[in-house]
Write a protein that binds this DNA or RNA. Sequence first.
DNA 1: GAGCCGTCGCGAATAATTCTCAACAGCGAT
DNA 2: ATCGCTGTTGAGAATTATTCGCGACGGCTC
Lengths: 142, 142
Amino acid sequence: MHAHEDLKSAGLKVTLPRIKVLEIFRTAETRHLSAEDVYHRLAGQQADIGLATVYRVLTQLEEAGMLARNSFNAGKAVYELDEGKHHDHLICLGCGRTEEFIDQTIEKRQKAVAESFGYTLRDHQMALYGYCPDCAAKRAKG
Amino acid sequence: MHAHEDLKSAGLKVTLPRIKVLEIFRTAETRHLSAEDVYHRLAGQQADIGLATVYRVLTQLEEAGMLARNSFNAGKAVYELDEGKHHDHLICLGCGRTEEFIDQTIEKRQKAVAESFGYTLRDHQMALYGYCPDCAAKRAKG
DNA sequence: GAGCCGTCGCGAATAATTCTCAACAGCGAT
DNA sequence: ATCGCTGTTGAGAATTATTCGCGACGGCTC
């Protein structure tokens, strides 16, 4: 629960930047944050942490399995808390809203497809793009 | 068949860079090429075409539906000829080899998932990562 | 409490891609 | 074939996202 212990049990030194970054993710109203997002939130709370450090911390927390990285929009990575349960994303092309889901049928088929090529599946990334109800309505009238 | 006509029917001016880039894709031994890849191949055949132009042409050919863009490795986009038949990719983490496939079960489920959230699915991207038979064997003894 | 080593902040360095702008080249009308 | 309008090109500067290098600093073990 406390960032302090989580860091320690991950074998990472307990430092201010790491604690702060974790807290940001745990209290943010949005689930997905980019390095820049995190950096600005830190700046907005007197914490004087460099952008390079934010990048470093994000990478470390990802390696420690506490955060998961995603590259949706191509050209900018976002992170989210990794609660252990894998999921995929459905992103609105209009407003950027994202939904998370997991579909066992798809998961099973992915593994089957990989095996049919003789591959050992290790990971995958999938993102669906479309318009959410609101944006679809807006586009309908224009 | 000829780049010339294809460009014309796409409503694009027939220019040397566009013809050359299309030819590169049609004769390349690899299906996926990055902007840099295309640029080097052009340089290797006396064609003196700038990198900025390569980027512009790739974007235009994509908009014209002649090429499809993919961003696998996060941080570098690759293009491939768009023959109209959508497909997904299975990429080897060891050697980078890629296989193409399409699985109707997955396609159907994706649409169903989007609809269950009230979304109108417009597009999606999916890439599976694993080890091909060769690389899996190498890793086994390593 | 001292010191070792990992960590930090900062600015410079990369990498991929886009923009700016003047020179130029298709293409339709002449 | 020629002319000119407009879209296109090349070169380099500019942007964006991210990483490096380095001297200063701060956890943590003893």
